[in-house]
Design a protein around this nucleic acid. Structure first.
Lengths: 230, 230
DNA sequence: TTTTGTGAACTAGTTCACAGCT
DNA sequence: AGCTGTGAACTAGTTCACAAAA
């Protein structure tokens, strides 16, 4: 056997780009907008021009999941929208639990954007006895964190939102993962670890702000780069 | 002149990756943590192991801004931290104005993470007369949006945070950009447009949630991909 | 003719691996 | 010996450009 020198045998790879799901979400938002405006038919070019996207990328992103267009015509707005909802798993109710009922947690519980996008706030948890039993401005009752496993095991929690202080975030995440929750939206400024099979999305205000500060500080030096949507 | 067929003459390009500023922010967070633990010296390998980063990437990211290490030794914690603060422009006070005093805007005004990271909330604006004059839970007074230009022109606003409903976001952004603000943190679910030279970072809860939903829906099919920090 | 869907070409970003310094 | 800083190799992601379909 000829010893090939560290030739790398590759796994099949993920094919779909890390950013594709986020872009699909944007496309869906665009289609909702078009539908509201009464536009029955669109095309990758039309979408690209209206919303400052790239036509080829739209087609590539969609191509991974199927062929939803009609050559020479484009896409039927409501048809493509339905496909995207399916791909994104939004064609069924999604339950969200928020852990941490501080300012941020309560604001998130009342945030209308979640409801508008079809997500349901299932519960708001905190371990501070002074908070338990009270409710958010919008009327979401704060329950004790001890109840989380019961709610989770009832299968009502699809996504757990972490809105606790950074020092306790990892412990909270560990207990949530133990109940079988597979998706976490983390608002705490800490790099949490989860086992394979659990997906985490970090929403990092501080990092975003510091990146902006960087661009202010560096000025035109490092950055004539265009703003990206993501 | 030999007609070269669409040979592309390239601009110098941006050299530093789009994600580098965000990673620098993470490195800074790590260094703060190390300093608090009394660790005087570290290395790219040490940082990578402790915080699950990539040693080569840390060195590459830093290399763009200078040579801050000592060969054979590594980096002096407080020294590298100071350099990063300088690169990120955090060695001076940064003023933040929040526009939109709904649940989210008020929660952001009270969010301790901003203060901890050295940002100063300069003002909280809203155009609803019922809100103007009242204050957030944490005591930040809500001022009328009409006052924004005065505050901005006084030079107190480095970053404007957009926490208004999507339909009015673009109009609000336009007026802010007109006052000379160069950095915007956008929490509204809308693709806002700004002129070149203005930097926007979008914080999209809905997109993050829908991406999580995607991974739940697709299951192991499309995604054995590891969780990224960013 | 128009616009999709897609291989091929290209660009950006990451990781390797090692020369060079301490 | 150990670790940085960096060109080179590699991988991922984007855009081009065109054959195929309606």
């Amino acid at each position: 056997m000829p010893a090939r020198k560290k030739k790398k045998q590759r796994a099949p790879a993920y094919a779909v780009s890390e950013f594709t799901p986020a872009r699909l979400s944007i496309y869906l938002r665009c289609l909702k907008d078009l539908e509201k405006s009464g536009v029955k038919t669109t095309s990758s070019r039309d979408l690209a021009e209206r919303y400052h996207l790239n036509a080829a990328q739209i087609r590539k992103d969609l191509a991974y999941f199927g062929a939803f267009g009609v050559r020479g015509v484009g896409y039927y707005t409501s048809d493509l929208k339905a496909h995207l909802r399916g791909i994104l798993g939004l064609d069924r109710p999604l339950g969200i639990a928020i852990v941490g009922a501080g300012n941020l947690g309560r604001a998130l519980a009342d945030y209308q954007g979640f409801h508008q996008a079809g997500f349901q706030i299932v519960a708001l948890f905190d371990n501070d006895p002074d908070r338990v039993g009270r409710q958010s401005r919008g009327g979401v009752v704060i329950r004790h964190s001890d109840e989380l496993p019961d709610v989770a095991r009832a299968g009502d929690i699809d996504v757990a939102v972490i809105a606790v202080p950074a020092p306790v975030a990892q412990a909270v995440v560990d207990s949530i993962v133990a109940t079988g929750v597979k998706a976490i939206l983390n608002f705490s400024p800490s790099a949490i670890k989860v086992p394979a099979g659990v997906k985490v999305k970090n929403v990092e205000f501080t990092i975003s702000l510091e990146s902006l500060s960087f661009f202010l500080a560096q000025g035109s030096k490092a950055n004539a780069a265009p703003n990206k949507i993501l």
